[in-house]
């Protein structure tokens, strides 16, 4: 291994300066975030203020957000209807997504103590699908275990987490991504990718060289 190289601040500053990126580039990163995360009115304002062409139809942002809110509320049926209104192919072509929505619905039944409905729903809708794939089956088993613990906090973390808001967010995120994909829009927030690349890059570079980290310039 070559000895660790040391890069001084001035030198590093010069390299930072040499990086090619324009305000317009950064504006588009911001827009990407606003669109994907569904900040419709902010995206509209930004489109005006920054003089950027909107990458998607702003109305599609709106409907995406309504769906997301329905999921975060726990109103799965409403969300499914709206997704189908938007584009029926989304669920038709995504069996895993559809299963996760159904699973979420089952979770909501259990959450609200509607045990009879939960059982009926599981038997009529989920069990047949559980036979389709091992992944579905194990998810179904995990969900049904909720009944055994009767939503008590003593349930193992792997099971009680199904009741957490994070589970709703996860499902909502999946739906969001699927809709974005159906609109041929990127589904990963580029800003998140940037942060991750920064962490990745700094970690890798740390092994090879001494250099000013972000925040040390």
């Amino acid at each position: 291994m070559a000895p660790k190289q040391s890069i001084r601040k001035e030198e590093w500053g010069r390299r930072l300066h040499d990086v090619q990126v324009t305000k317009n580039d950064l504006n588009r990163l911001i827009m990407d975030y606003l669109v994907i995360e569904g900040y419709k009115s902010a995206a509209e304002e930004f489109s005006q203020e920054a003089n950027l062409a909107p990458p998607v139809d702003f109305e599609s942002i709106e409907s995406r957000m309504v769906i997301r809110e329905a999921l975060q509320r726990g109103d799965i049926e409403d969300a499914i209807t709206r997704v189908n209104d938007l584009n029926p192919e989304i669920l038709d072509t995504n069996p895993a997504l559809y299963f996760h929505l159904q699973q979420q619905k089952l979770i909501e039944y259990i959450r609200h103590g509607r045990i009879t409905e939960a059982l009926q729903f599981a038997q009529s809708e989920l069990a047949p699908r559980g036979e389709e794939s091992p992944e579905f089956l194990s998810e179904l088993e995990r969900t049904m275990a909720l009944l055994a613990f009767d939503c008590s906090p003593s349930a193992p973390a792997g099971i009680s987490e199904l009741l957490s808001p994070a589970q709703r967010m996860k499902t909502a995120g999946e739906v969001n991504a699927a809709i974005l994909e159906s609109l041929s829009q990127g589904k990963e927030v580029k800003l998140v990718g940037l942060l991750k690349l920064l962490s990745w890059g700094e970690q890798m570079l740390e092994e090879k060289a001494e250099f000013p980290r972000i925040g040390q310039m």
Binding site: G201, L205, I214
Partner: peptide, 18 residues
């Protein structure tokens, strides 16, 4: 954000050169 971007790009560049 701009600083982040520049820092990231500089890291990647440096890695490539190393």
């Amino acid at each position: 954000l701009e600083t982040l971007y520049r820092q990231t790009a500089a890291c990647i560049m440096q890695l490539g050169m190393l």
